[in-house]
Design a protein around this nucleic acid. Structure first.
Lengths: 223, 223
DNA sequence: ACCTGAACACCGTTCAAGT
DNA sequence: ACCTGAACACCGTTCAAGT
């Protein structure tokens, strides 16, 4: 009697999950009331029964992603020793979540206020730091420094997102060697002792390096 | 014979300036082909004669802002001694430009490729660093670290954008003291030797502190 | 060469109406 | 209680047509 595919009732949760799926698959611009409706086999207007507005839906997206971070970082690894290791591990996990949802940092930073879940992360972080001898003042600064790293480092500024075809012709390369010698050196293998650090840019390594600088600096400021 | 207000001819430049003005005054969402047309006293469709698409226009916005950074940082202060002082000064100037255009970091990071003007900034930075004994490898990392700071630190994650009314009732505050003691301490004046570092959050000081950590770290890595 | 009117597909959102 | 049709104001964009 029950048809093969019963249409599940809508819910805020189902809507948010569908929206995250759309964003992951087609980018944040595909997150549209009408397309969410399509994905859930209902009309766009039905969503307004569960979600106040598009803005509230977008805030829900951020909530969803930050919830993933909370879930991933709730339990510290058993063998962890010291605050540095703990915080480093959590930052790397948080980043891995952001990499799964490249649209998320933008969305999170565009919100007028941080979703409530965020406080759980901060509470945990401040706890760890204060236990390790940080003042609250310094812990507060650590929040800003680490938060802006996790959210700000995903986007790439320099190289083409693809890393695929060289966008430069030989002529352009030639001109660049004259007008911008240092960048040319940076982009050219086997010069100045680099192997072309531009072309082989490993963003993950960059992230870990910069994060290391920050953690070292915080450790020094602690003493 | 010439009427009091001659309608200036359109140009890419005029369009971009008008768009930046709209974004500064009403936010990036107000940057609309139709509203730009209104501001320039022409029809939205006319813009397409000078601008390929909305995407190209947005790229132009980023170009405009990065151009401001280039202009602000082209000449180093006469009395500057050493790379740290030079780079610190440029980062602070770059940040001040971003603060004048709060929509800019989002826009810049959303681009598939960095505008060409950006290379001028990187060339200058790499030059300064290599002259100071940085390897190209390390200079590359500095680009990432500093770039993500300048673009990522504008957005606030924690406190309400306003800093105005307390969004929390006394009850909520009470509950927070129990479930999130550390954040409660962070938010409460005269506890644990802080004067309520949350309420008195000075983002500029936070930025300079974190930037200092990075510069110190880079200096150590140089040696 | 430069600008516009008309038209299209697509948005978010409201609200009265259906079940 | 939950969902929808019709309608509105607003998008980006194309293209033939005006000057």
């Amino acid at each position: 009697m029950i048809p093969a595919t019963v249409r599940q009732p809508l819910s805020r949760e189902r809507i948010l999950v569908a929206a995250v799926g759309l964003a992951d698959a087609y980018g944040i611009s595909a997150v549209t009331m009408r397309r969410i409706g399509e994905a859930l086999d209902c009309e766009a207007m039905s969503l307004y029964y569960y979600v106040e507005s598009k803005g509230a839906l977008v805030a829900g997206l951020a909530e969803q992603v930050i919830g993933e971070v909370v879930a991933a970082t709730a339990a510290d690894p058993p063998g962890a020793t010291g605050w540095r290791e703990l915080v480093l591990g959590r930052c790397l996990l948080a980043r891995s979540v952001m990499l799964r949802h490249p649209w998320a940092p933008q969305v999170i930073m565009s919100l007028p206020e941080a979703p409530t879940v965020t406080y759980a992360i901060y509470e945990q972080l401040v706890g760890t730091l204060v236990d390790a001898g940080f003042t609250y003042e310094l812990a507060h600064r650590a929040i800003h420094a680490l938060g802006s790293m996790v959210l700000g480092f995903t986007q790439e500024l320099f190289e083409p997102a693809d890393g695929s075809a060289p966008t430069m012709t030989v002529d352009q390369m030639q001109a660049m060697t004259e007008t911008m010698p240092h960048l040319a050196a940076l982009a050219t293998p086997d010069i100045h002792g680099t192997e072309g650090s531009l072309s082989t840019c490993d963003t993950q390594a960059e992230f870990e390096f910069t994060l290391g600088l920050l953690l070292d600096g915080l450790d020094r400021a602690r003493a």
